[in-house]
């Protein structure tokens, strides 16, 4: 089964974005907490006495969706741009270190921060977007494509 139906991909993207925004709104409205995945990972790694449990529960929710996706919507996990193992691990190291240092990732800064018009999050989002765009461009040029 596939999610790629007659619905245009930008409409799916908009709907998915809406669900992401709704999730962030629910977590703030129910628990008073910012939805930030790198922050949740950090709470687990730091074994924060108050936040470790709820953060683990949230991340397990994501894992469960992935397990089900593999069975029912495997297309949603397609990777048309696989990188070498070394590059993939390096990317993880940079994302892990960088999001811990910058206190947030796409969800915490990009979605939650911009939604509450945080200047810090705006600068963070512009920084990682620009760095991402530059990296993809350099990678394409260096790998010989144009």
């Amino acid at each position: 089964m596939s999610l790629e139906s007659d619905i245009p991909s930008w409409v799916q993207a908009l709907a998915g974005g809406g669900l992401i925004g709704l999730s962030a709104a629910l977590l703030m409205g129910l628990e008073g907490r910012i939805l930030g995945i790198s922050g949740f990972v950090r709470s687990v790694l730091e074994a924060d006495p108050k936040l470790k449990g709820p953060s683990t529960a949230f991340l397990l929710g994501l894992v469960l969706v992935g397990i089900l996706a593999q069975f029912y919507f495997v297309d949603t996990l397609t990777n048309t741009q696989p990188r070498s193992y070394m590059i993939t691990i390096l990317a993880g190291l940079l994302v892990g270190y960088g999001t811990a240092m910058g206190n947030g990732c796409t969800s915490g800064h990009g979605v939650c921060g911009l939604s509450r018009f945080s200047y810090r999050s705006l600068i963070a989002t512009l920084s990682f977007m620009a760095a991402g765009m530059l990296t993809v461009t350099l990678h394409r040029v260096l790998m010989g494509g144009m």
């Binding site: 992935g66 993939t88 270190y97 796409t106």
Partner: peptide, 26 residues
């Protein structure tokens, strides 16, 4: 600095933390 390092990693593999954890489940 942290956001720039994150952006480089994001551009290298196309994963940010949330989607990566979903795909780990998959």
């Amino acid at each position: 600095q942290g956001s720039i390092l994150f952006g480089i990693g994001w551009g290298l593999a196309g994963f940010c933390p949330g989607p990566a954890i979903v795909s780990i489940g998959g």
